[in-house]
Design a protein around this nucleic acid. Structure first.
Length: 288
DNA sequence: CGATAGCTGTTGACTTTTCG
DNA sequence: CGAAAAGTCAACAGCTATCG
């Protein structure tokens, strides 16, 4: 069993598609098909079920994939550890951003002022295995933090943002149930903030009437300004976005808060750059 | 409904690379 | 150098979607 076979298998398994894997790996498709078959022969089982022109991981394949994936990650960590020992510069940090994306540019530029040798690769589209490949994730969904190592960076209140000319704008605070019938502007359902605010509404006993959905906080702001609805606005992560034309209302019931976490995979090896970034990020959020 | 085009994975024949 | 491994190309088989 060769390391290369395992790398090939991992890519094929990730996409469940040999052609796609072959393009990524820069080898021909038949070559991958053969390598996979060799591996399967050696293991004495098929790792994929073949359905005509398609392949799909079977139970053997899924079990094997988990081990291979973690083994390959471990090897990557080992390489980093050696680079670190050699004192090789610059270093690269892979960062997954699920929350507080508006704060990231400032965080990173402040960090790079002090540590210009550290480079970053940023990822925003979560996928099943995505965050495993990253050194760190910034996120706010507690369920994602489970089973990982993490530290809370900051807890922030979540306000209700309404246009200044809205009747509610005169109030300072309210109970969430009061806006049961209001048109809501919201992020897409895959966003951390959206999932949390959906839970707030559910807790209050209603389903928000969402009339606009966007990927972008800045679009949400624009839509509030234009008077098209109201929206949940996290107090710290969106501060730079919200101008004077939007009023922020405190929500009394329920308590609307979220915590932003920095997380990493448990067995992760911390390079010098990783350690610097972790402590810097902690301080940065503490000072906001 | 069948013909057809377009994918995708497998296989055979062959070439290139690797390694003892 | 020479065998084995790894790769390529071309042909083929099986499936899906589309179109008249």
């Amino acid at each position: 069993m060769e390391l290369q076979q395992l790398k090939y298998f991992e890519t094929i398994a990730r996409y469940e598609n040999i052609t796609k894997a072959s393009k990524l790996l820069l080898v021909s498709q038949p070559s991958l098909s053969r390598t996979l078959k060799q591996l399967e022969n050696e293991l004495g089982v098929n790792l994929f079920d073949r359905y005509g022109r398609n392949i799909k991981l079977n139970r053997y394949g899924r079990a094997f994939f988990r081990k291979v994936h973690s083994a390959l990650n471990s090897i990557e960590d080992g390489k980093k550890e050696i680079d670190d020992m050699k004192g090789k510069e610059p270093q690269n940090i892979k960062l997954m951003i699920s929350s507080a994306s508006g704060l990231i540019p400032d965080l990173l530029s402040s960090f790079r002022e002090i540590h210009p040798n550290v480079r970053f690769s940023l990822f925003q589209n979560k996928n099943e295995y995505g965050s495993d490949d990253c050194d760190f994730s910034i996120l706010s969904l507690y369920s994602y933090v489970l089973n990982k190592s993490s530290i809370p960076l900051r807890t922030e209140e979540i306000y209700l943002g309404v246009p200044n000319n809205h009747p509610l704008a005169r109030k300072k605070s309210l109970n969430l149930i009061e806006v049961e019938k209001e048109p809501f502007i919201s992020l897409k359902p895959n966003k951390d903030l959206r999932r949390i605010t959906d839970i707030f509404c559910e807790y209050s006993g209603f389903k928000p009437n969402i009339v606009f959905e966007s990927d972008e906080p800045s679009m949400v702001r624009g839509l509030i300004k234009a008077g098209l609805g109201i929206a949940f606005v996290p107090s710290i992560s969106w501060t730079k976005l919200i101008g004077p034309s939007i009023s922020l209302l405190h929500i009394d019931i329920p308590k609307c808060k979220r915590t932003i976490y920095l997380s990493w995979k448990e067995e992760k090896y911390f390079t010098k750059a990783d350690k610097l970034f972790k402590s810097f990020t902690q301080k940065y959020f503490g000072n906001l």
